[in-house]
Design a protein around this nucleic acid. Structure first.
Length: 519
RNA sequence: GGCCUCAUCGUCUAGCGGCAGGACGCUGGUCUCUCGAACCGGAAGCCGGAGUUCGAAUCUCCGUGAGGCUACCA
């Protein structure tokens, strides 16, 4: 079936976790591959040994799987151009480098002619937190590095067409020193390791990548990479640079500081399909106002033309000070759970949360139970005591009112644990007004006598009770609600009674009468 | 400092020379049962200045602001 020549890749570094920016980049590649029936390749860019984490690759693959993005070739499943780890392709980079050297396109040199960086620049880099001592030292390495000879070919500017941004160009002078010589750049470090730009091109050529889809922080790299493609005499792929995703401060997402690990969103009870939908809409839109779009619809509608070039903020809702400075790069479960609590709060009222709620509503009860179970277990509810049917009834009642799985688990608490105390405000507002306590006593006796404990029967009982006394339904429903839940909020009262069961309902009402009497 | 890119409600966006529209949030209201549910309203925006044009959010130029890259980091 697959006769498309489209081959795209997602090439993350295994530095600890998959974050929302990476997911967006992966997503747009994946969407394009699926739309064109091409191949989506997962490649691990682990040439920077310092920053790699051993379990990094697994974390990325787990995140991709959770998001629902599958790959056709990759580190675990291999493929025609294996291996898909850069660290295992070192010989190949050296081989290509040797070819370039042999054909006079690259040369070994020790250049410190540029000398140490100008002071203003060092200061700026330090200020931006980008200063890297190791990197600075490497530049001072006494051994030669392999430089690519930049060939301007008489061009006044270097130009390429970007599928998203249109024609992009850069003046040739940028690659010229004042004396007219070209500003060549390193492709193999003095320690023999390839730099990113070089390894990336070699891999993309070897793996026959047709479209390079990545963040627009790579636009500048593209110009350098074009010199490599040309020197090596290879076909240049189509480039598509995606607008960045910024944090709330309008800066490039920082893995260190921002809460962006997708496992965090998972823990907040976000559904993967909702996160994907939300991220697809960051920088792309179908153009007709559709917001909730199932994956197959997004695939059908996806095109580079509809990607805009301005950056988007990955914004939650209210900004509150985080409990700790770590943005999710923690391994301490205690700290992690604090961050999840904080993030859940920040998410209230956000578009992501809204989209999630929409997806949550559409799940079948079976599916909802499956997804919610880990969250219910985390709340220490004893699930073994209850039937599947009962559990589905319970979560079904809160399905519409909850926007995340985490909220759902919190909202159903009253069905698993009787309230230990009554909310004093609720007692004041409901039980101590309008004869609340007296009415509760009366309705309790009727509930004790009812023959059929079913939703409709209970609905009839409560409504009949109110009608008889010419009271608004709320006047009687609220006292029951407070008795059952301890608060003024719960699902519809007859459903709550029904699911709780006669015995438990009466027990709670009795307890509430006793407690409220003392207050 | 140099080069590149971007600029529409608070946020995500539609707009491709002809009345600035949608969504989230906010806000007001409705609902003989509560709610962060549902339903119905409202406020809220073209970064600034010139130019082209009968007409500019849209095209051009100049500012301003923001971001990216700029070292052997990816």
């Amino acid at each position: 079936m697959s006769n498309s020549s489209v081959r795209v890749r997602f090439a993350p570094s295994p530095t600890g976790y998959l974050h929302v920016g990476g997911v967006r980049t992966a997503l747009f590649n994946w969407l394009y591959a699926r739309k064109t029936q091409g191949k989506f390749i997962l490649r691990i860019e682990d040439t920077d040994i310092q920053r790699n984490k051993e379990e990094g690759t697994q974390i990325i693959m787990d995140g991709m799987k959770w998001s629902g993005m599958n790959w056709d070739e990759g580190p675990d499943i291999g493929g025609p151009y294996a291996p898909y780890y850069q660290s295992q392709r070192m010989d190949r980079y050296k081989q290509v480098a040797a070819e370039l050297e042999k054909s006079g396109k690259a040369y070994w040199a020790k250049k410190d002619a540029g000398g140490p960086l100008p002071d203003w620049k060092i200061e700026k880099l330090k200020k931006q937190g980008k200063w890297d001592d190791e990197k600075a030292q490497a530049a001072q390495d006494p051994n030669p590095a392999l430089y690519l000879k930049v060939n301007l070919k008489e061009r006044k500017e270097i130009t390429f067409h970007d599928a998203v941004k249109g024609d992009l160009s850069k003046p040739a002078e940028t690659y010229q020193e004042e004396d007219g010589s070209t500003r060549d750049f390193v492709i193999l470090r003095s320690n023999g390791m390839p730099v990113y730009n070089f390894a990336c091109v070699v891999d993309d050529v070897d793996m026959k990548i047709s479209h390079v889809i990545r963040g627009d922080d790579h636009v500048e790299n593209t110009f350098r990479q074009i010199f490599i493609y040309e020197a090596w005499d290879q076909k240049i792929p189509v480039f598509a640079h995606l607008p960045m995703i910024f944090n709330e401060e309008g800066k490039k997402i920082s893995k260190r500081r921002d809460p962006v690990a997708i496992t965090l969103y998972q823990a907040c009870g976000i559904l993967p399909e909702a996160l994907i939908n939300f991220e697809a809409l960051l920088g792309w839109s179908p153009g007709d106002g559709r917001e909730i779009m199932p994956l197959d619809e997004i695939i059908r509608e996806f095109s580079f033309e509809r990607i805009k070039s301005a950056a988007a903020q990955f914004t939650l809702s209210r900004k509150r000070p985080p409990p700790v400075s770590a943005g999710g790069a923690t391994t301490d479960p205690e700290v992690e759970s604090q961050i999840v609590e904080w993030l859940s709060e920040c998410m209230v009222g956000s578009k992501l949360e809204w989209i999630n709620g929409e997806y949550l509503k559409k799940l079948s009860r079976e599916e909802l139970l499956k997804r919610a179970t880990p969250f219910l277990q985390k709340k220490d509810y004893d699930l073994t005591q209850h039937s599947r049917g009962w559990l589905m009834d319970v979560i079904g009642m809160e399905q519409e009112r909850s926007k995340t799985l985490k909220q759902l688990a919190e909202n159903v608490a009253l069905f698993f644990k009787a309230p230990e105390a009554l909310d004093p405000k609720a007692v004041e507002k409901v039980l101590k007004k309008n004869d609340g306590l007296a009415l509760l006593k009366e309705v309790r006796d009727q509930l004790a006598k009812i023959e059929e404990w079913s939703g409709p029967a209970l609905d009839g009982l409560v409504k009949g009770f109110a009608e008889q006394r010419q009271l608004k339904l709320g006047i009687i429903a609220q006292p029951i609600r407070v008795a059952l839940s301890g608060t003024t909020v719960s699902p519809p009262i007859h459903d709550t009674l029904h699911v709780l069961g006669q015995q438990e309902s009466l027990r709670r009402i009795d307890k509430a009468l006793e407690l409220a009497g003392k207050m």
